[in-house]
Amino acid sequence: MTKSAAVSAASKPSSGRSATSRSARRHYLALLQELDRRRRSNQLAAYRPYPRQAEFHAAGALNRERLFMAGNQLGKTRAGGAEWAMHLTGRYPWWWQGKTFDSAVRLWATGVTGEGTRDNPQRVLVGPPQQQAAWGTGMIPADAILHTTMGRGAPGALDSVVVRWGGGGDVQADESVLSFKSYEKGREKWQGETLHGVWFDEEPPLDIYSEGLTRTNATGGITIVTFTPLLGMSDVVLRFLSAQEVEGRAGG
């Protein structure tokens, strides 16, 4: 009986070791959840452009106007969102070779309609439009979003976002302002503002593009256009093509 009892006792798992194992698993899962939260709330830190995106960004060092024209699902809007987030926050990565601003900025992100602006540039910059709890999972890091103002049009559409710029090391913190606009409102709604940059996501009419560019003249700012070519050799596309390129496309 004594031997049998000893074997039985030895075969029982130690409650102390079991509790320690459960605690370790909980700690490990908590670490994974925290890593996932940090990744989702700071997508900008993980952005690495593929060669064509990198070429588009780098061209900003010398050019006020840039066009990223490519097919669907090739990272055009993602590239625009990443660059806009860098300018809004002042957080330029070590590999960055493009345009930089040394102070807070006022930027616009625009699209064809209110819904289109909400579903593309706003989504990429801020997060899912209909899930406010997930705002901060776009390209603008969650800890940089100070305030949001709702728009009056499409449900979930934002009018503007106040973004924390700088504040690291010797850089004094300031505030950038991002506003969302659409082409459907007409050129008159684009007048009056002085901006550091306008992002056209989808091809704009020439008068809208010209007005947006004018908004950046006083600051020496920039315009970027990201779209899939659907309108052929439009006036906006022609602004970015050399005579040889135009001739070659016409001949093709």
Rank of each mutant, 00 (worst) to 15 (best):
N120K: 11
T219L: 03
R78P: 02
V236N: 07
L213P: 12
R249D: 12
G192D: 08
G98M: 13
S179V: 00
W96E: 15
E202G: 07
T137G: 09
G114I: 05
A58L: 11
A82V: 01
D102P: 01
V198S: 00
F200M: 02
T226M: 07
I222Y: 10
Q73Y: 02
S4W: 01
D170E: 15
G197I: 01
V171F: 04
S210G: 06
V105D: 00
G251S: 14
A58K: 05
E247H: 11
L146Q: 14
E115D: 13
G136E: 13
S8W: 06
T216P: 06
Q244H: 15
R37G: 13
I208A: 12
G127A: 14
D36Y: 03
Q244K: 08
F227M: 07
E245H: 07
A133N: 10
M1S: 11
G80I: 05
A54Y: 01
G197W: 01
G138V: 14
G90Y: 02
M139I: 03
A59L: 09
W94Y: 15
N63M: 13
W165G: 06
V237Y: 05
V112L: 14
P13H: 09
G136N: 11
A10Y: 04
S179I: 00
V162G: 02
L238Q: 10
W95L: 11
S210N: 13
A142S: 12
A157I: 02
T219M: 12
V126N: 01
T113L: 07
R48D: 13
F180S: 02
R64V: 07
R239Q: 15
N63H: 13
D235H: 12
A19D: 15
D207G: 14
R48Y: 11
F240M: 05
W165V: 10
V161M: 05
R123S: 08
L213R: 09
T89I: 08
W190T: 01
I140Y: 07
R48K: 08
A58N: 10
P51Y: 03
E65N: 15
L44G: 13
R52I: 07
R22H: 10
T226P: 03
S15R: 05
M69Y: 03
A46C: 04
E188R: 12
N217Q: 14
I224R: 00
A134K: 12
D207K: 01
A45D: 08
L88V: 04
G111D: 05
F101R: 10
G151R: 07
L241H: 03
